[in-house]
């Protein structure tokens, strides 16, 4: 187990280098120049532009810039923003806790409601509950998230007045509740469907018949015997979804004005702030890698037949 974890951690190094390099190159080939953008509509002074470029190392060849950047990264220096010359790390440490709060609420919602709905539908396959859940999840998956988001904002915020239409304080869990529900909705639908299929399949297994023949109460059969065998595909999805929820909340954060990672990333892209984009993505890559490692380790916990040497 220890060796497996070590190997996986080592494998992260090339993945990490590869992704950062890719992002770095992509940001640089994007049209638009962040330095010129500092002048807005006014004609820039070529000498000053050259000066800033030189100061920031933007006049160096791309590979040198990359090495430079990676060198800084290893010392925990994410570079500075071009506009404002503020440390990128500050922006990241401001945005991440907000996104983490939002994502963890959405994720918990997916986990609890999604699995419960899936179990209900799976053991009552073909009945009313199952049809309702299947239909509901299909609806959620097919409707784009911005529609759900705007509808919730309109309904709960403007019509009913239960919430403020936009989030005023991104630290406040109560205000983040509705955005989190919106964010977790699609994942919830997938979790419910995955659980349902898995449960319905495992329900036919021989060991389930044994469990009934042992005279176990129904609830115990479902929670101890059925659920554990059915959770592996669900865990896989929930694991990778952590990363998606953290970085992919651009639309939800935009609608509800949450100042999280999605928002930061969007702003940075608009302003061609390469250092911010690469920084944020780097952290997200780390989140993804950690999540997938944890998922793989969870497999072994859930199913003893899976062992890592």
């Amino acid at each position: 187990m220890g060796r497996y974890v070590a190997r996986r951690l080592l494998q992260m190094i090339p993945v990490f280098i590869g992704t950062t390099l890719l992002i770095f190159i992509m940001v640089n080939v994007l049209p638009g120049d962040p330095v010129r953008a500092l002048w807005g509509d006014k004609p820039p002074d070529p000498a000053q532009v050259a000066q800033i470029r030189h100061d920031r190392g933007l006049d160096l060849p791309l590979w040198q810039q990359y090495l430079h950047y990676m060198g800084g990264l290893l010392q925990g220096d994410f570079g500075n923003t071009i506009a404002g010359n503020r440390p990128v790390l500050d922006e990241i440490t401001q945005a991440f806790p907000v996104s983490m709060r939002l994502a963890s609420m959405a994720w918990t919602f997916e986990l609890i409601v999604g699995i419960s709905l899936g179990v209900l539908a799976g053991i009552r396959r073909g009945r009313f509950v199952d049809n309702t859940v299947t239909l509901f999840t299909l609806l959620v998956i097919s409707v784009p998230i911005f529609v759900v988001g705007l509808l919730c904002q309109l309904f709960f915020g403007n019509e009913l007045g239960w919430i403020t239409p936009t989030v005023q304080d991104s630290e406040d869990m109560g205000q983040l509740l509705v955005p989190a529900l919106v964010l977790g909705m699609v994942g919830l639908a997938y979790v419910a469907r995955l659980t349902r299929t898995s449960i319905a399949e495992n329900r036919q297994a021989d060991y389930m018949r044994t469990a009934v023949a042992k005279g176990l109460p129904r609830q115990r059969i479902v929670t101890r015997h059925l659920l554990r065998n059915s959770l592996i595909p669900v865990v896989t999805y929930l694991g990778t979804d952590v990363g998606t929820l953290m970085g992919g909340a651009v639309i939800t954060e935009g609608i509800f004005n949450v100042t999280g990672v999605g928002n930061l990333l969007f702003q940075a892209l608009a302003r061609r702030e390469g250092a911010v984009i690469v920084g944020v993505v780097t952290v997200l890559v780390l989140v993804y890698l950690a999540a997938s490692l944890i998922v793989d380790l969870l497999y072994a916990v859930l199913d003893p037949r899976i062992r890592y040497a």
Binding site: D206, Y207, R209, T210, K214, G215, N229, L302, D303, P304
Partner: peptide, 25 residues
């Protein structure tokens, strides 16, 4: 009936590998 199962009448199945739960000791 549940209380009879296992306690008064028990059953042994054909294929023990699939009839035992793979994830429980």
């Amino acid at each position: 009936r549940r209380k009879v199962r296992g306690r008064k009448i028990a059953m042994i199945f054909q294929d023990a590998l699939s009839s035992l739960n793979p994830v429980l000791s």
